[in-house]
Design a protein around this nucleic acid. Sequence first.
DNA 1: CAATTCATCTCGTCG
DNA 2: CGACGAGGTGAATTG
Lengths: 249, 249
Amino acid sequence: MTTENATLSTVNHPSVEAAHDAISDGLERDALVTVFGRCTVDYEGRAASRLEAGDRHVMLKPDGATLVHTDEGQQPVNWQPPGCDHDVRRVRADGADVLVLESLRSTPEERLLVRFTDVLQVSAFSGTDESDLSLSGTEADLRTRILDEPDLLEPGFSPLATERDTPAGAVDVYGEDAAGRTVVVELKRRRVGPDAVSQLRRYVDAVERDLHADAAVRGVLVAPSVTDRADRLLAEHGLEFVSLEPDPG
Amino acid sequence: MTTENATLSTVNHPSVEAAHDAISDGLERDALVTVFGRCTVDYEGRAASRLEAGDRHVMLKPDGATLVHTDEGQQPVNWQPPGCDHDVRRVRADGADVLVLESLRSTPEERLLVRFTDVLQVSAFSGTDESDLSLSGTEADLRTRILDEPDLLEPGFSPLATERDTPAGAVDVYGEDAAGRTVVVELKRRRVGPDAVSQLRRYVDAVERDLHADAAVRGVLVAPSVTDRADRLLAEHGLEFVSLEPDPG
DNA sequence: CAATTCATCTCGTCG
DNA sequence: CGACGAGGTGAATTG
């Protein structure tokens, strides 16, 4: 039995002053702070953006992340990555009180400014979350599947190494076929396009140079399926394809 | 002057029944609904995942998106894309009332289940947001910069087409150099690695086949900078690099 | 719908 | 800190 110790402080339709104090308190307590209201958003850093006034949901995380969400889309319309310093201020502009949220970071230098003219709610949540996500169906699961049963790739295949380093990067699975030829395997958990073929090609080229032998190195792309263009590219480059997916488990 | 018509309904420390009703009302009104409390999360679809009990922030958007956020990270720990049907139910489990949120979609078939044992707050926000994000510093801005001033690429360069189709995909900028040689340009808004070099290579190969001529086609990568490995790859493939970034404007 | 590619991609891992 | 590649990538655009 767990002791429930999550806490909430919240205020509805606050004045700019009350909103400022609630946010400031939340940040100080390392809470997850949310603000909903009418705001403009300016970003400057790796790129630059401006968003005119609208009603949005802003989340300030204790790790420094900021998210600005509209009522549409999975992605925030504006954001700042973890590692920022959050700041909240009251500013007098055009004869009205404005609430300003600033999230600032360096490397790269970038800044997000959210200016609220109306705030409907400020909430500050504290809680505990010790759990890590357990995920299956990843590329690692596909690799495990092949290592457990190498014949899934082809009869007689012998894996020799995973993540084998080459001048072009790490090869997912490196092994030998029944005839003793070197095989480079690139894994993808989902249907692949031309980019994956190019990636495999780079690895095969690198391994061929590494072995500085004339012995041809086989390249095998393992994925649930390939697009037409990728299939043509595979043929052009003398590469192979094996259809396989991560375990549903 | 805009009429402020954003609305909020919210309830703190609700019973499971009260939480259910508040969420149900919010979904019906196409509001942006948030729930904070202790929950487990299960996902099954393109992959599968489980997250044990913890305190998290869940957002249900009227477009069907679902986001589950912990107090860390820019990305949600679990989610569902827009286009889902949201459902909320009360379930009796282990002698306790549990609040269940389900977000379901097809193509692909996938489902997210969030089970709350404790709810600290439910809020439902409605508002208006007509504004689109105005963003600068994108790859499109870099293209504009080169089209406006082709000499930035090199003296005498003449752009002939953008997004020119080839069997390998669309070439960012297609043109001729001062000597009349065909030039394929690949643009990247930021520092590039080996993948961008491979991409350019595919396009150059495709254009050479397309022209089925022996006339060598030049490939130029335009980006702020390249990594070591990418630089080596460029040299191996006889490709060129020009350092340029999108306008800071 | 599928295919392709960009992204302020984010995130983890490794040197 | 940078480099590299995976991701349930998402999002836009185009057949």
